[in-house]
């Protein structure tokens, strides 16, 4: 069976700040980012859905020593989406020098950031961003 939601489709939607995922018609779980089958029950009976794009920060770090092609400092974190899955992204709108443990638990809204890519990546890369809402 054909791959229902490819990385390319996911990235194109993300560029419009829309978070696409897969909802399992068998067990109801959401798989984000997409995979071939449901991450919970391995069913292929999946539906492409748009998620709310809201979540809550679970953990984070401030990167000070970056990989080639990135400029530090910046914040990377993982948020639990309202629909259940965890997702990795850059936490934006917060000064990296002032990031503390208080970030954990903050409500965030999803957005995106385009990275031009490098010789190792297959073209440009689109990162998820999380903006804490006050």
């Amino acid at each position: 069976m054909e791959y229902k939601l490819t990385a390319k489709m996911f990235a194109e939607a993300l560029k419009e700040n829309r978070l696409l995922g897969l909802k399992c018609n068998r067990c109801g779980a959401y798989t984000v980012p997409p995979k071939k089958v449901c991450l919970e029950c391995a069913s292929e009976d999946l539906e492409v859905v748009e998620l709310s794009g809201w979540g809550q920060i679970q953990t984070f770090t401030v990167i000070q020593v970056p990989p080639e092609g990135f400029e530090a400092p910046y914040i990377v974190g993982m948020a639990e989406l309202d629909e259940g899955p965890w997702l990795m992204g850059n936490i934006v709108g917060v000064d990296p020098d002032e990031a503390t443990m208080d970030l954990i638990g903050k409500r965030v809204k999803l957005g995106h950031k385009i990275h031009p890519g490098d010789k190792f990546s297959a073209g440009e890369m689109v990162a998820v961003t999380f903006s804490p809402q006050t």
């Binding site: 953990t59 990167i63 020593v65 990989p67 990377v76 850059n90 443990m101 954990i104």
Partner: peptide
């Protein structure tokens, strides 16, 4: 890390374990 969905954030190896440390403390 997942090159499609995680690499674009600039995550590094120390970064993964740094997130582990923050989660552990919390």
């Amino acid at each position: 890390s997942d090159s499609r969905y995680e690499a674009p954030t600039g995550i590094t190896f120390p970064g993964i374990f740094a997130m582990m440390a923050h989660l552990y403390a919390k």
